[in-house]
């Protein structure tokens, strides 16, 4: 057996490997909090259901809607992900206030709020995103419009509704 061979070679190496296996099993059974490098490798294992409506991010640069088909996978991710992160600032902060702070206190570890909390500063974000986007699209961003558009999934297609909110309203 592999571990027997390791034990014969080096007890230290054997103990490290046993620790690694035990820690990974513990994280699996505990479910929820992970400790790097012990993760859950679920890869879309949780049940996903088709929904009636979806909130979809739309980006207009200089009045023109950006299309996924005009960008590589990495570029499209670079365009979309910062917007999701900005829209998620409130839930990021909530996670800290409700869970992280409590757990760190339980472990007798102080938590400096400013290292975990982000502020909603749309003007600063928009200025940064204009430059960032210009480098991806290779054109200056004179006007920018980012919105969360509600779509319905009916007749096997996504159909746009009239319900639209702008990114600045997602975090304020």
């Amino acid at each position: 057996m592999f571990l027997q061979k390791v034990y014969k070679h080096s007890r230290w190496l054997f103990l490290i490997m046993i620790f690694f296996v035990a820690a990974q099993l513990f994280i699996n059974f505990k479910q929820g909090l992970v400790i790097s490098p012990f993760y859950h490798y679920g890869m879309f294992s949780a049940v996903s259901k088709l929904k009636d409506s979806y909130e979809i991010i739309e980006v207009q640069q200089n009045g023109k809607m950006l299309r996924g088909q005009d960008f590589s996978i990495q570029e499209w991710d670079k365009i979309m992900l910062p917007l999701q992160y900005y829209a998620g600032i409130n839930s990021n902060n909530k996670l800290f206030r409700t869970d992280i702070k409590r757990l760190l206190t339980k472990l007798h570890l102080s938590a400096n709020d400013k290292n975990f909390l982000l502020q909603c500063n749309y003007q600063q974000f928009e200025n940064w995103y204009k430059n960032y986007l210009a480098q991806i699209t290779n054109q200056p961003t004179n006007t920018l419009n980012i919105c969360f558009h509600q779509y319905r999934f009916t007749s096997n297609k996504l159909i746009a509704t009239d319900s639209v909110t702008v990114l600045s309203q997602q975090c304020n």
Binding site: G32, V34, I35, S36, Y85, G88, D99, L109, F116
Partner: peptide
Amino acid sequence: PILFSTRFDLFTWLLMKTG
């Protein structure tokens, strides 16, 4: 980067404490 998203990872929190 100008913003981040915290994950549910104890090791990451310890690192984040350093700023």
